[in-house]
Amino acid sequence: QKYEFMSRTGEGAYGSVWRARDKNTGVLVAVKKMKDVPATEEVREGEIAMREVRVLQLAKHVNIVNLLEAYKSQSGRLYLVFEYVERTLLQELKGNRTGLPPAVVKSITWQMLQALGYLHKKQIIHRDVKPSNVLLTENGVVKLCDFGFARACDNEASDPAYTTYVVTRWYRPPEVLVGDHYGPPVDIWALGCIFAEMLIGRPLFPGKNHHDQLWLILKSLGAMTEHQLDLLEADPQFACFRLPKPSEIESLDQR
């Protein structure tokens, strides 16, 4: 093996991430080890991994994590090797429960906008922007990572076949929650949620489930579009959902 696996740093739905060392150069790297899956799921697992590889081969930017190589072991398991970055934004937030310094918030937000602007110009949607997918180097450089849900889009409005199983719940916008068409703005919504979280030290919309997530958003931001309301009424999973009353609306300033 080319790499010495040292410690596991993360676990996701499709694999685990390890801190490793290149045996030839001594350089630290991050290796994503894709999970072994049943034969019936091989295509799905392969699609996720190859999507990430294809996107990262196209996306070369200072604020996007660098994919060094991808290889398969003798057993057929896929490994993705990335530059090693020390910390995540999630770790920073856990260590600063009252929020990050304004200058740090500005720097991270600006760099994230550069990364997302670059991706969107290339017609790529990340679809899973959240604190654990924002890496921070010792010098304060932001690296957006985990492109397993990323995909190309031909225009701003998504194909209706795009899955709504994207974006971690707390960072999911109304159009995704109700099954509406979506596009690059879903990434900007997620960044807005992260921006607020960095300022106040806690998630902006920490929904306990699908219903609660939509309720918290509407309680702060008011009504959805008529089209989204129609989708909401037609969706059986929202059959018992109640829209907030005007007296229950609490603006972000009030919160």
Score class of each variant (00 low, 15 high):
Glu42Pro: 01
Arg44Ser: 11
Pro101Met: 11
Ala49Phe: 07
Thr109Gln: 09
Ser75Gln: 15
Lys94Gly: 05
Asn209Tyr: 05
Lys121Arg: 12
Gln111Glu: 07
Asp36Pro: 02
Gln123Ala: 10
Phe82Thr: 00
Gln74Val: 09
Asp154Ala: 08
Leu93Thr: 03
Val134Ala: 03
Leu93Arg: 02
Pro131Met: 09
Met34Arg: 09
Val37Arg: 03
Tyr182Val: 06
Lys245Glu: 12
Tyr84Ala: 10
Glu83Lys: 01
Glu92Ala: 11
Gln114Tyr: 11
Leu58Met: 14
Ala223Trp: 09
Arg8Cys: 15
Met112Arg: 06
Pro173Ser: 05
Gln228Cys: 08
Ser73Cys: 11
Tyr165Lys: 12
Lys208Ala: 14
Lys208Thr: 13
Gly140Met: 13
Ser73Ala: 11
Asp235Leu: 12
Leu58Asn: 10
Val31Asn: 00
Pro102Asn: 11
Met224Leu: 14
Val55Thr: 04
Leu56Thr: 01
Arg87Tyr: 15
Glu45Leu: 15
Glu197Asp: 03
Ala196Ile: 12
Leu232Pro: 00
Gly207Pro: 00
Leu252Lys: 04
Leu252Tyr: 03
Gly201Asp: 07
Gly26Thr: 12
Asn133His: 03
Glu42Cys: 09
Asn66His: 15
Asn133Met: 10
Thr40Glu: 15
Phe205Glu: 00
Gln57Cys: 14
Trp189Tyr: 04
Leu252Asn: 05
Met50Leu: 15
Thr9Pro: 00
Gln237Asp: 13
Asp22Ile: 08
Arg54Val: 13
Ser107Gln: 04
Met34Ala: 08
Glu47Trp: 13
Ser251Asp: 11
Pro185Asn: 07
Asp180Ala: 15
Thr40Met: 14
Gly10Glu: 09
Asn63Tyr: 06
Tyr84Ile: 12
His120Asp: 07
Leu243Trp: 01
Gln114Trp: 09
Leu136Met: 10
Phe205Ala: 02
His181Thr: 08
Gly76Ile: 13
Gly95Tyr: 07
Phe149Tyr: 08
Arg151Ala: 10
Arg44Gly: 11
Asn155Pro: 04
Leu191Gly: 00
Cys240Val: 11
Val53Asp: 05
Ser132Cys: 14
Arg54Gln: 11
Leu199Lys: 05
Trp18His: 02
Asn209Trp: 04
Gln111Ile: 09
Arg51Gly: 03
Gln228Pro: 00
Leu136Thr: 02
Glu86Tyr: 05
Ala39Val: 14
Leu214Gly: 00
Arg127Glu: 06
Val43Met: 13
Arg51Thr: 11
Pro236Lys: 08
Asp212Val: 10
Ala103Val: 15
Leu90Arg: 05
Glu83Ile: 07
Ala59Tyr: 04
Ile194Phe: 01
Asp22Leu: 07
Gln57Pro: 05
Cys145Phe: 08
Lys106Gln: 15
Trp18Cys: 02
Asp146Phe: 02
Gly10Tyr: 09
Glu226Ala: 12
